[in-house]
Each structure stands twice: as C-alpha cells, then as structure tokens.
C-alpha cells in the first residue's frame, strides 16, 4: 500500500485486511498509533484476527482483543445494572451506541471501544428514571448549577451520572439530538419501533441506529470519533441493508445527514460513492491524522468545531453560553 500515513491507512486496512502484507515497520507503527487515536484498535485487532502479521504486531493485537472483550463485559454489566433499577418503572430503556451493538451481538460491536452507558428513555419518564438511578447509587458528576440548568433546559440528556461503586458513567437521553438543534428527530418513533433484546432492555431498530449514527456524526459534534462512527454505519448496512432507511431518515428530518453518512462510509470502508465537494471536505477532516496519531490540518478542525456549536444552539444562546463560561474563567 503506497498510502500516506493518515486516517486512510486505517480505513483501507479495515476495508481490505489482506493489504497489510505489504506494510513495513513504519507503516505498521503508524497504523497502530492512528487506530489508537481513533479508539479503533480493538476493531482493527478483530479485523486482522487470523491473518499473518509480524510477531510484535500479533502480540499488540491480541492484547487489544482481550482488552476489548473486557470492555464488552463491563459495558454489558453496566447495562444490566441499569436494567435492574429501571425495570420496575415499566418504561422502555433503549441502549444506544456501543453497548447496544454488543448487547445485540452486532458486527459493529466487535472489538468496539465503549465508554459511558448511553440510554434513551421517554421524556415523560425522565424524572422517575433520574430518581431511581440516584436511589440506586448513581451520583451527579459535577454539582454546577449553571451547567445543570443548561443541560436540563437545552440538552437531549440528563447531566451525566456516575455510579459511586463501579465508577461508570451513564448518560440518560430522551432524544438523539439536543433540543437546540434545528433538527428534531421523532423520539416517539425511536421508542415505539425499538427492539427488545431481553426483558427490560431494548435497542433501536437498525434504521434508527443508522439515523442516530448520522445525527451524532454531523449534527451533534465536531466530527471527533467520526471514523469509528462511520465504521458502525458500514457494519450496520452490511448486516441489515438499507430497506426503508430513506423514509425513516426523512421522518426524523435527517435525510441529508443519513445520505452523507452512507456516502462517507462507502468511501472509507466500502465500494466508494459519488462524492460532493462537501463530502470531500468531511473526508479530509475525518482522516486528518499523521503517523504519530496526531490530529493534523488544524484549520479544517477549527472550522468544524465552530460549525458544530452553531448547529447545536441558536446564535444568541451560544453567546450566552460562552459568556457564562468566560465569566467563570
């Protein structure tokens, strides 16, 4: 592979693991650093499992698989802990993102790094959910009245809670985008069409998983973690196809985002796609890593960072938000 040592090296390896036979020591070193920086070392390790790689690399990848497995166990237990507490409320507790993938045994979950436990519950149940979690040993992470009011008024989730014994965070969402975003996905439909994994634990339908991944990527952040997010998209499509996806995306007001996610995932990991100029800019930003795992192309990054704030909050609100932050120093 005569590739530059950037995010494309990781993408190309995930698409075609056999291509690694051509990698030399420097490229392997870069690939591992980039995969770690994108939090995809476990995914890479599973993708290369069984292939002949240099002994040192085999060693590192085996450790990464073991580490991902331990992460999977911990994530599933955290979901189980939440399930036990929330089952008596009789509301749907929908697992999101990585935990949902591993709980449902999806390809996207294989080797995936999983951080906090993200769940979606009906907005009307938010207070009851919060009370039940507090009763069962979860505590507020930061007792800051401004941040708290901000979260409650404008965000799509409760302020994060952490369990006092297990030291694990839970994010309780009632929809998949902040209320300040211009797009308002149909949260009721997300819940209504969820799939029960085991009594009391649900996952989004495959098309809603795709809609969520797209929303998360383009409307709810600065594209950080984008390569992993698009790998999720790629795996979900490979497993479930795209039947009914266009209609569902339209229902959530996410047609543009879902369309772009499909094109970018195909460009990175699949058969390629007809790209718009904006798509190319996104790809440039998504793959902006050097062989040391460092984020490169800072100007592209900054543009996206500002953009993500604007998307989330109408302008006056952003000014107020920043002002409060500045005042606090």
């Amino acid at each position: 592979m005569g590739r530059a040592l950037d995010g494309w090296l990781l993408a190309q390896t995930l698409r075609d693991p056999g291509g690694t036979v051509a990698l030399g020591a420097e490229a392997w070193t870069a690939l591992l650093a980039i995969a770690r920086a994108e939090q995809m070392i476990g995914t890479l390790a599973w993708r290369l499992n069984g292939l002949t790689v240099p002994p040192s690399v085999a060693h590192i990848l085996a450790d990464a698989r073991a580490s991902a497995e331990q992460g999977r166990v911990a994530a599933l237990w955290e979901a189980e802990a939440a399930r036990r507490v929330l089952v008596p409320l009789g509301v749907r507790v929908v697992l999101l993102k990585g935990t949902a993938f591993v709980a449902a045994g999806l390809h996207a979950g294989q080797g995936r790094s999983i951080g906090d436990l993200d769940i979606l519950v009906p907005r009307a149940a938010l207070d009851a959910v919060e009370a039940a979690l507090l009763e069962a040993g979860w505590e507020w992470v930061k007792p800051d009245p401004y941040d708290d009011a901000y979260y409650r008024q404008w965000m799509h989730e409760l302020p994060p809670l952490i369990h006092r014994d297990r030291d694990r965070m839970i994010d309780v969402h009632h929809t998949i985008l902040p209320l300040t975003a211009r797009i308002t996905p149909d949260a009721g439909a997300l819940l209504a069409d969820a799939v029960e994994l085991k009594p009391g634990l649900w996952a989004l339908s495959p098309n809603d998983m795709l809609a969520h991944a797209a929303a998360h990527l383009f409307a709810d952040g600065d594209l950080a973690g984008g390569m992993r997010n698009l790998w999720d998209v790629h795996c979900l499509i490979a497993e479930f196809g795209t039947d009914g996806l266009a209609g569902r995306a339209a229902q959530h007001g996410l047609s543009r985002e879902v369309g772009r996610a499909l094109r970018l995932a195909a460009a990175l990991y699949g058969e390629g796609a007809r790209l718009t100029p904006a798509d190319r800019l996104y790809l440039r930003r998504l793959t902006a890593r050097d062989g040391w795992g460092r984020a490169t192309r800072p100007f592209t990054r900054m543009a996206f960072y500002i953009r993500s704030h604007w998307l989330r909050m109408p302008p006056a609100m952003l000014a107020r938000h920043l002002w409060t932050k500045w005042r606090k120093g």
């Binding site: 020591a25 420097e26 392997w28 591992l32 240099p54 040192s56 690399v57 590192i60």
Partner: peptide
C-alpha cells in the same frame, strides 16, 4: 530496538 521495528507504544 523494538522487535520487528514496531514499538508497542508511542510517546510524544
């Protein structure tokens, strides 16, 4: 030097 020239960890 690292085995195969591929280090386990990178420090910057």
């Amino acid at each position: 030097k690292p085995v195969d020239g591929v280090p386990d960890f990178t420090v910057r």
